[in-house]
Amino acid sequence: MRIGILTGGGDCPGLNAVIRAVVRTANGRYGDSIVGFRDGWRGLLEDRKVQIQNDDRIDRLLTKGGTMLGTARVNPDKLQAGIEQIKQTLDDNGVEVLIPIGGEGTLTAARWLSESGVDVVGVPKTIDNDIDCTDVTFGHDTALTIATDAIDRLHTTAESHQRVMLVEVMGRHAGWIAVNAGLASGAHLTLIPEQPFDVDEVCRLVKRRFQHGDSHFICVVAEGATPKAGSMTLREGGIDEFGHKIFTGVAQQLGDEIQRRIGKEVRTTVLGHVQRGGTPTPYDRILATRFGVQAAEAAHAGKYGVMVALHGTTIDLVPLAEATRQLKTVPTDRYREAAAFFG
């Protein structure tokens, strides 16, 4: 069998571990050949490929962040319009099964291909942990570890200067990094996209903490957090070429508003791409490896149109149509657990 593989969307710790696992399983167990397409779906549209060998270089991928194949974003309309071109590229290269590794956009494109007759096995990745039908995605644990370590460090400098610290983390539509990092680091408030915040309430919590004699206030803010209507107005950033909302820095704008309203010194830290760079944690290496092994096994079992998923401690297969129906967001009761420590 000849298997194609690509990594789409944003980079994520653990991508290389999946590639390694697919190659070692498919080639080592079944003698398959593996062709990688460079820069995600763009590589398929432009027929840019590389033969991946099962050698020492593959083994060294386990601990390496990023992706050996490169990645890129493609406008969804362009991608959907290029389905026939993608199918032609797969045929020209003798690819019998495609294993795309990616988030919501990549898995949606995988579903489109599956519906048009291509044999596909998807692998979910995202540091945001917002892919439905799987308990967790690889990359999230690494991002959470990095964010928690950063907030731990900010506690000490905030205490020293009696400051309010706002820490902006990734999370466009889902606040999993924020809510988990807030809990893990003992933050005094967490703001997520699923729960619009009231600036007056934020200011009340800040003032109350200092009035009680505490020396600092740490607030974790997901990049997609938004204020309640009438609470404050965020600058508009428009929409980028991929159909994504352009964020304008909610933490900095909230910090300015807090400082204006209550006169307390505020500092903002934006963690940004630091969260998804570097070496994956052991948990993410293991999960990514298990996903890769099971994706290769599914390909040989003829189980297509599916995504590998973690349920408890077991790797299962779920239909791509089901996995891409909606995003997995933070439920209200989960946020209420975190809210017990606010203030």
Rank of each mutant, 00 (worst) to 15 (best):
G66K: 07
Q53F: 07
T108I: 04
R336V: 06
I177K: 06
K264Q: 15
G305F: 04
L287T: 01
G343A: 08
R60G: 09
V202N: 07
G224F: 01
L62N: 05
S160D: 06
D55V: 00
G9R: 07
Q85Y: 03
K228Q: 13
Y30N: 11
E104K: 08
Q252G: 11
V270T: 14
H155E: 06
E201D: 12
T324H: 00
G70W: 09
G139Y: 03
Q195S: 09
A295S: 01
L144E: 05
I19L: 12
D39A: 14
I34Q: 07
T106P: 07
F210C: 11
E337F: 11
G237A: 13
G139T: 02
M307V: 15
W41H: 02
G103Q: 05
L61G: 05
L79C: 01
T314R: 10
V250S: 14
S160R: 01
V121M: 00
T67N: 13
G312I: 01
L205Y: 10
D135W: 03
G9V: 03
L90I: 02
G343N: 14
G230Y: 01
H244S: 15
M1N: 10
V74G: 03
R285K: 10
Q162S: 09
K78E: 12
K264S: 13
D152R: 06
T71V: 12
G66L: 04
G343Y: 12
H311R: 05
R260M: 14
A158E: 15
P196D: 12
L113T: 02
F197M: 09
G182E: 05
G312W: 01
G31Y: 09
A299M: 11
E194M: 07
G105S: 14
F197N: 07
N180M: 08
I131P: 00
Q275N: 08
T63R: 11
G43T: 06
V293Q: 02
L327C: 13
G66Y: 09
N180A: 11
V206G: 14
